[in-house]
């Protein structure tokens, strides 16, 4: 297995952890559980969101750094194939992924700061920042997965 594929797998695993954490947190802020959680979905929403903020920042940074490293190989060996096959939607979706991921990076200081604030303050800001990050993470994950299905780095 080549080094790029190993890095891509690690990037994907970090992204899965990040997806789980940010989805827990996003559901927790939008549909919080007010009674003791009974079923699986309620338990999923019942997590204390503030406890996830540090982990999410670290995982986002780690995923971004790993993504930035393998992005160079994508430009050489994957994007050119997408262009040759005229797969414009896949190429455009990956362009959007890079911009959404970059915007998410810029939101991390505010996200971290407002999750450290008392729970009663800035609830809307916290919810919106979390939602934007969750959208960026889900979008990036799905686009990366589809593009890897079209053309991976090989073995």
């Amino acid at each position: 297995m080549n080094g790029w594929t190993i890095l891509l797998i690690v990037h994907g695993l970090v992204a899965v952890a990040l997806l789980g954490a940010i989805t827990h947190q996003a559901l927790g802020v939008w549909v919080p559980v007010r009674r003791p959680a009974g079923n699986f979905v309620a338990r999923f929403r019942a997590v204390p969101g503030a406890g996830y903020a540090n982990a999410i920042v670290v995982l986002y940074l780690l995923a971004a750094v790993l993504g930035a490293v393998i992005y160079a190989e994508y430009r050489i060996s994957v994007r050119t194939v997408l262009q040759q096959l005229e797969m414009r939607s896949a190429e455009g979706a990956f362009e959007l992924k890079e911009h959404f991921a970059a915007i998410g990076l810029g939101l991390l200081p505010a996200y971290w700061y407002y999750w450290r604030a008392p729970a009663s303050d800035h609830a809307r800001t916290r919810a919106m920042l979390t939602s934007i990050l969750a959208f960026a993470v889900w979008f990036s994950f799905l686009v990366g997965h589809v593009v890897n299905n079209i053309r991976g780095f090989g073995v």
């Binding site: 190429e91 959007l96 911009h99 939101l107 505010a110 800001t125 919106m128 934007i132």
Partner: peptide, 21 residues
């Protein structure tokens, strides 16, 4: 709120700019 409003606007603007794809 400026943090998320500007971010959301930028994301929408990128969607518009890349619509040709």
């Amino acid at each position: 709120a400026a943090t998320w409003i500007v971010a959301l606007a930028a994301m929408l603007a990128f969607c518009w700019l890349l619509k040709g794809f």
